[in-house]
């Protein structure tokens, strides 16, 4: 087949092309995010309202160890916001599927991992923005982390990694749902028990025994506790909890990422 005139190619190998493809798709997703500022604004408004709601409406009714509810609350809000943010991974993919853009991508010689890699990488960037925003809002309403700057950043990385693991699960939802609305509807029943039956907003000791058994051992509680341990220390210090959280996140990535990529490949 020497007479086939292939187009010229950028020098590189399978690995560098994969990285470059992921970068191209990430950039495209971030441009989309920037060009729809209204979506960014309203999706930021919701966690801010949660902060205000719990800080000023529920705080007085929820006794917590250590006394400062806003300190207790903020790590929970961070994790909750990122969990719900993972819905946008599902929605983004469902939309690309619906418009036919993924069909065009599938006919290109690009890496089969790039669509999902680019989606999740862009969503990690969005989460970094969310952490910055909520940190500012938290400080404005009296959040005073006592664990030190290094531990605060470590907690941020830990939470970002957890959200990253979760995204791969939502990528599968996005590729399975017929449209963006269905993707969103499929996500809520998963996220509600995980975020609310957890230590994010109230100490789990206040829950009935059977619920505690679930709440104490599920990954959101573990990651919230790990973030608290790092951000606040003192009362909330839990040796070993960080490793538990990392193990969950790593488990999510190792199990869900290959499943999602396989799902993308098999969609043909």
């Amino acid at each position: 087949m020497t007479d086939i005139a292939f187009p010229p190619t950028q020098s590189g190998n399978a690995l560098t092309w994969t990285i470059s493809d992921i970068a191209v798709v990430t950039k495209r997703n971030l441009i989309r995010l920037m060009r729809t500022p209204e979506a960014l604004f309203f999706s930021s408004l919701q966690p801010i309202m949660f902060v205000l709601l719990f800080r000023y409406v529920f705080a007085g009714a929820i006794p917590v160890p250590g006394g400062s509810y806003v300190n207790y609350l903020m790590p929970g809000i961070f994790v909750q916001t990122m969990c719900f943010g993972a819905i946008s991974t599902a929605i983004g993919l469902a939309e690309d599927l619906q418009t036919g853009l993924l069909e065009r991508f599938r006919a290109l010689p690009m890496s089969r991992a790039a669509v999902l890699g680019g989606r999740t990488t862009a969503d990690v960037c969005r989460n970094i923005f969310v952490i910055g925003l909520l940190t500012a809002v938290g400080f404005a309403v009296g959040f005073r982390p006592t664990g030190g700057v290094a531990n605060y950043l470590l907690a941020a990385l830990l939470m970002l990694f957890f959200a990253y693991g979760l995204m791969w699960g939502f990528a599968i939802i996005g590729l399975t749902a017929a449209n963006a609305e269905t993707a969103q509807l499929m996500s809520f029943p998963l996220l509600f028990p995980l975020t609310f039956a957890s230590s994010a907003f109230v100490p789990t000791q206040s829950m009935p025994g059977w619920l505690q058994a679930f709440a104490n051992n599920q990954p959101v509680t573990i990651t919230v506790n790990a973030a608290r341990s790092l951000m606040l220390g003192g009362h909330y210090a839990m040796p070993g909890i960080i490793w538990k959280s990392l193990a969950w996140s790593l488990g999510f990535v190792v199990v869900l990422a290959p499943l999602a990529i396989q799902r993308y490949r098999k969609m043909a």
């Binding site: 187009p7 010229p8 190619t9 950028q10 590189g12 092309w17 470059s20 493809d21 191209v24 798709v25 495209r28 441009i31 989309r32 060009r35 729809t36 853009l101 065009r104 991508f105 290109l108 010689p109 690009m110 790039a114």
Partner: peptide
């Protein structure tokens, strides 16, 4: 992609084709 410009769309497809 309707959120991108014409140039951005074509460059994206070009890059994903691994063209120089």
């Amino acid at each position: 992609d309707e959120n991108l410009t014409g140039i951005e769309n074509l460059e994206m497809i070009g890059r994903l084709n691994h063209l120089p």
